[in-house]
């Protein structure tokens, strides 16, 4: 007989909800970016609408975590796992909001020639998505090496961000008629840089689960 089988099942349920929330957030980032590249306002609006689903999942995760603390009185690793679920779901929710912000930037840019190919934004987005998947995996698999990799990738995003900032501000002088789009892309650059910071916080929660102490991976 597995001792505390019901508790194990509930922890598994918590993990499934976190995986689902992460999956939806990755889709939000992908779709908002597609919308930005193709200037697809319809798709951008859909990203904004679908964010409710992610917010609802965060609420469900919090409710389940609170109920498990009341019911199971977890200690040690179990408690760190549940605290981690609460903190991580809050970070993922914030990351999904950046997806929404990118969608809103798309709407503000409207039609015209896209300048996105003149930046490193797409590469940044790709790194962010890889980071997000790795950060969650490091938490679920309790893999410290993976958590540290996420910290290293945050440095990579910071470099892309600096590069993109220079590219965009350079264009601002040359293409004043594109000021609106360039300012919005500067915002997107900021959103992605912040996204990577929030993902790094997730990796720190994983490190706390594994080692029981605070790690600064930023």
């Amino acid at each position: 007989m597995v001792v505390r089988e019901n508790f194990e099942n509930s922890l598994q349920e918590l993990q499934v909800k976190m995986e689902e929330m992460t999956q939806l957030t990755v889709e939000s980032l992908e779709k908002s970016f597609d919308a930005l590249k193709t200037q697809d306002v319809e798709l951008a609006l859909r990203v904004i609408e679908e964010d409710n689903e992610i917010d609802d999942l965060e609420e469900e995760i919090n409710q389940l975590a609170i109920w498990l603390m009341v019911k199971e009185q977890p200690v040690a690793r179990d408690l760190r796992k549940i605290i981690g679920a609460i903190k991580i779901s809050s970070e993922v929710e914030r990351i999904a909001d950046f997806g929404v912000n990118i969608a809103k930037a798309t709407i503000k840019i409207g039609n015209g020639d896209s300048l996105i190919n003149k930046t490193s934004l797409e590469a940044m987005k790709e790194v962010c998505i890889t980071m997000l998947n790795k950060a969650l995996k490091s938490f679920f698999d309790e893999n410290m090496a993976l958590a540290k990799e996420v910290g290293d990738m945050d440095d990579e995003v910071d470099e892309y961000s600096d590069e993109t900032y220079k590219q965009l501000t350079g264009h601002l002088c040359e293409r004043q008629e594109e000021t609106n789009q360039l300012v919005q892309l500067l915002f997107v650059n900021r959103y992605l840089e912040r996204t990577a910071d929030h993902i790094t916080n997730i990796a720190e929660s994983a490190a706390y689960l594994i080692k029981g102490r605070k790690y600064d991976l930023n």
Binding site: R4, F7, V75, A76, R77, G212
Partner: peptide
Amino acid sequence: IFSMPSDQRTEDYVTGRFG
């Protein structure tokens, strides 16, 4: 003992996974 025990057997006991 209740947040970060050093021994796996302690961890198993305090988290109720003993036996």
